[in-house]
Amino acid sequence: NQESVVAAVLIPINTALTVGMMTTRVVSPTGIPAEDIPRLISMQVNQVVPMGTTLMPDMVKGYAP
C-alpha cells in the first residue's frame, strides 16, 4: 500500500508547505504520494487543510501529478 501525504497540523489557506506540516499515512482514497514531499515544500495550499486531512493534488497550487 502506498503512503499518501497527510496534514500533520492545521494548514491555513495560502500557506507555503514545510516538512513539519506534512506526515504520511496509508489512506483511502490515496492522495499525493509520500515521495512527492520534496516537491511540495514551498508550494501553497489553496484551501484550509485540517489536521489529518489527506492532501489531494487539487489542494496544492501548481502541483501536477
Score class of each variant (00 low, 15 high):
Asn1Ile: 13
Asn1Glu: 11
Asn1Tyr: 06
Gln2Thr: 10
Gln2Asp: 10
Gln2Tyr: 15
Gln2Pro: 10
Gln2Phe: 08
Gln2Ser: 14
Glu3Ala: 11
Ser4Lys: 02
Ser4Cys: 03
Ser4Pro: 00
Val5Leu: 05
Val5Asp: 01
Val5Ser: 02
Val5Ile: 10
Val6Asn: 02
Val6Ser: 08
Ala7Asp: 00
Ala7Cys: 03
Ala7Met: 03
Ala7Gln: 01
Ala7Val: 04
Ala7Asn: 01
Ala8His: 07
Ala8Glu: 06
Ala8Leu: 14
Val9Glu: 08
Val9Ile: 06
Leu10Asn: 09
Leu10Val: 08
Leu10Tyr: 13
Ile11His: 00
Ile11Arg: 00
Ile11Val: 07
Ile11Gln: 00
Pro12Arg: 09
Pro12Thr: 06
Pro12His: 13
Pro12Val: 04
Pro12Tyr: 06
Ile13Asn: 06
Ile13Thr: 12
Ile13Asp: 12
Ile13Ser: 08
Ile13Glu: 10
Ile13Pro: 14
Asn14Met: 10
Asn14Phe: 07
Asn14Cys: 04
Thr15His: 06
Thr15Val: 11
Thr15Ala: 13
Thr15Tyr: 06
Ala16Pro: 12
Ala16Phe: 12
Leu17Ser: 00
Leu17Met: 12
Leu17Gly: 00
Leu17Glu: 00
Thr18Asp: 14
Thr18Glu: 13
Thr18Phe: 07
Val19Ser: 13
Val19Trp: 15
Val19Arg: 10
Gly20Thr: 12
Gly20Ala: 13
Gly20Lys: 13
Met21His: 14
Met21Arg: 05
Met21Ile: 04
Met21Gly: 02
Met22Phe: 09
Met22Gly: 01
Met22Leu: 12
Met22His: 01
Met22Tyr: 02
Thr24His: 08
Thr24Gly: 12
Thr24Glu: 13
Thr24Pro: 05
Arg25Asn: 13
Arg25Phe: 04
Arg25Gln: 09
Arg25Ser: 07
Val26Trp: 09
Val26Asp: 08
Val26Tyr: 12
Val26Arg: 14
Val27Asp: 05
Ser28Ala: 04
Ser28Thr: 15
Ser28Arg: 03
Ser28Val: 14
Ser28Pro: 02
Ser28Phe: 15
Ser28Cys: 04
Ser28Lys: 07
Pro29Val: 05
Pro29Ile: 07
Pro29Trp: 04
Pro29Lys: 08
Thr30Asp: 08
Thr30Phe: 07
Thr30Gln: 12
Thr30Leu: 13
Thr30Ile: 15
Thr30Gly: 10
Gly31Thr: 02
Gly31Cys: 03
Gly31Asn: 01
Ile32Val: 08
Pro33Ala: 06
Pro33Gly: 07
Pro33Phe: 13
Pro33Asn: 14
Pro33Ser: 07
Ala34Ser: 13
Ala34Asn: 05
Ala34Tyr: 06
Ala34Val: 07
Ala34Gly: 09
Ala34Phe: 04
Asp36Cys: 03
Asp36Met: 15
Asp36Pro: 00
Asp36Leu: 07
Ile37Arg: 10
Ile37Ser: 05
Pro38Thr: 14
Pro38Val: 07
Pro38Ile: 06
Arg39Asp: 04
Arg39Trp: 09
Arg39Ala: 15
Arg39Gly: 06
Arg39Leu: 05
Arg39Lys: 07
Arg39Ser: 09
Leu40Thr: 02
Leu40Val: 06
Leu40Asp: 00
Leu40Lys: 00
Ile41Trp: 05
Ile41Cys: 03
Ile41Asn: 05
Ile41Glu: 09
Ser42Trp: 11
Ser42Gly: 12
Ser42Pro: 03
Met43Val: 07
Met43Asp: 04
Met43Thr: 06
Gln44Lys: 10
Gln44Trp: 09
Gln44Ile: 08
Val45Asp: 00
Val45Lys: 00
Val45Met: 05
Asn46Trp: 06
Asn46Ser: 11
Asn46Lys: 06
Asn46Glu: 09
Asn46Ile: 13
Gln47Asn: 08
Gln47Cys: 03
Gln47Asp: 08
Gln47Lys: 13
Val48Lys: 15
Val48Cys: 03
Val48Leu: 14
Val48Phe: 13
Val49Gln: 01
Val49Asn: 00
Pro50Tyr: 09
Pro50Asn: 12
Pro50Arg: 08
Pro50Thr: 07
Met51Leu: 05
Met51Asp: 07
Met51Lys: 14
Met51Val: 12
Met51His: 12
Gly52Glu: 14
Gly52Asn: 15
Gly52His: 09
Gly52Tyr: 06
Gly52Ala: 05
Gly52Ser: 04
Gly52Met: 03
Gly52Ile: 02
Thr53Ser: 08
Thr53Asp: 06
Thr53Trp: 07
Thr53Met: 08
Thr54Gly: 02
Thr54Ser: 05
Thr54Trp: 02
Leu55Gly: 00
Leu55Cys: 02
Leu55Ile: 09
Leu55Trp: 01
Met56Leu: 07
Met56Ser: 06
Met56Arg: 10
Pro57Gly: 08
Pro57Trp: 10
Pro57Asp: 06
Pro57Thr: 15
Asp58Gln: 14
Asp58Phe: 09
Asp58Trp: 06
Asp58Pro: 12
Asp58Met: 14
Met59Ser: 03
Met59Asn: 03
Met59Gly: 02
Met59Pro: 01
Met59Arg: 02
Val60Asp: 00
Val60Trp: 01
Val60Met: 06
Val60Gly: 01
Val60Ile: 12
Val60Tyr: 02
Val60Ser: 01
Lys61Arg: 11
Lys61Glu: 15
Lys61Ala: 13
Gly62Thr: 08
Gly62Ile: 04
Tyr63Lys: 05
Tyr63Phe: 15
Tyr63Val: 03
Tyr63Trp: 13
Ala64His: 11
Ala64Lys: 15
Ala64Val: 15
Ala64Glu: 09
Pro65Leu: 09
Pro65Ser: 10
Pro65Phe: 04
Pro65Tyr: 02
